[in-house]
Write a protein that binds this DNA or RNA. Structure first.
Lengths: 160, 160
DNA sequence: CTTAATAGTTAACAAGGGTTAACTATATCA
DNA sequence: TGATATAGTTAACCCTTGTTAACTATTAAG
């Protein structure tokens, strides 16, 4: 078996295992907080960007501006988002996360990474160092694959 | 910095990169085929189990039996599922994937793993062997973490 | 044989979340 | 200044997909 095949299989297997662990935790959390995919998507986008206008949320999620407006509405009512006027262009409403919103999203990230601690504990000191080197190599390579897409919109956008 | 911290960071980073690539492809595919999370969830469960009764689909996805029945209905109409009577207990309707259904799900898995080939190509032969070893180590460790959950139900179950 | 339990369907209904159309407020251009 | 474009909201509507309740068919138990 050629090395490329060996590597390929190993990576595929790893991806499989990873899916079970990481996405399971994340989705469980998503269900717990009782938010839809679109709602989480909107919150994550805003988390990444700091703030943005209503229309751009719609564009990025692939929904119409009215839909985005209603979406923001609900999240404002849940005290996860705040709307405020843009001082430079008063047509624009700038949307930002509340403290509660920020905490919620950070919780989600933490949920996703929780099992990592468990995994870490199973390795000896030396193993950890070696594995870290491998991981860094792969991260670097992946980063140079070009077209580094944003996770969020694709993951949580509207399905047509 | 202790080795555990180094490893932890490297793994977290890798998970992050991985999410972008693998889940993006999978979700893009999901959007393309125009199926809901629940529908994909049902198809994947049946794919894994070969066949199962309607009620158990409901249980596993966390929805009521009527909801499961309707869900199956729609998927049968799309020619992704088949319903047939269980010969041993004629109350039971056994649900199986059609050829089209099987192909669809396999396509989804392939979409998820597509970028892996690109990544493989960026490494030399020796690198690939070394990295494969690291990956296998981690897979093994992850598999022994206990409570090896099924991917599908959590990922695609009903949110309450 | 009658009664109770189980698998599934059907019907009526509700909520979430999308759409288009019509409107308001602000900004820009000629 | 007046006409037009842009950001956002509101309203009316519709589809998907969940729910509960009522029903049928089959099996199991006394």
């Amino acid at each position: 078996m050629p090395n490329s095949k060996i590597f390929n299989q190993a990576l595929t297997e790893w991806v499989h295992v990873f899916m079970r662990r990481s996405m399971q935790a994340f989705t469980r959390w998503m269900n717990e907080v009782g938010l839809s995919r679109t709602q989480i998507g909107a919150l994550m986008r805003i988390y990444n960007q700091g703030h943005c206008p209503v229309t751009s949320i719609g564009n990025e999620l692939g929904i119409t501006t009215p839909a985005a407006s209603q979406l923001v509405d609900r999240l404002v009512q849940m005290d996860l988002l705040e709307r405020s006027e843009d001082l430079e262009d008063r047509r624009v409403k700038v949307v930002t996360l509340t403290e509660a919103g920020k905490e919620l999203i950070q919780e989600g990230f933490m949920a996703k990474n929780e099992w990592i601690n468990d995994l870490t504990a199973t390795f000896s000191d030396d193993e950890q160092l070696a594995l870290a080197a491998s991981l860094n190599t792969m991260v670097e390579a992946a980063n140079q694959l070009g077209e580094d897409p944003e996770l969020i919109p694709e993951l949580f956008g509207h399905r047509m």
